[in-house]
Amino acid sequence: MTTQATPIRLRPPGNRVDQRAIPWWRWQLVLTAATLAVLLVVPGIFIPPARFWLVLAAIVVVVIAVPLAVLLPLWWYRVHRWEVTGTAVYTRTGYFFQESRIAPMSRIQTVDTERGPLEQRFGLATLIITTASSAGAVTVKGLDGEVAAELAHRLADITKLIPQDAT
């Protein structure tokens, strides 16, 4: 029915995540790779016959991890976006498998912020918005701690004002 010249598209959400998310993601990758490398090297110290192969595997892990830790966070920073309007929450993630989620304010059940130890170091927080559908939760990672807390408050207030119709 709609065969106009400019077909409608879903525009990307307005906001990027906080820039500090880049070092946060980077540290996550570095720590994961480092743990893996240590787990490989430690037995290598005690088991001489397997030392060569274990150390080689550890080196491979490091060689793969370094470019990933440099590039992936930059990439993720580009593809993670979010937006909160008066009536809905909208997020987008991914490139190869892009996923856009929209949750209407009136259906929001809980709003939580979560801060892991690493997130705390960078002053970041994750915002988790749930609806009555277990498949409908919306999460925004890598927000500035203050912004996330303020958003959580705002959302809680708005959802209190809007007549609830959760399910």
Binding site: Q98, R101, I102, A166
Partner: peptide, 8 residues
């Protein structure tokens, strides 16, 4: 109570 639009 929400939409998910996915596109590979």
């Amino acid at each position: 109570i929400g939409w998910t639009i996915s596109q590979s």
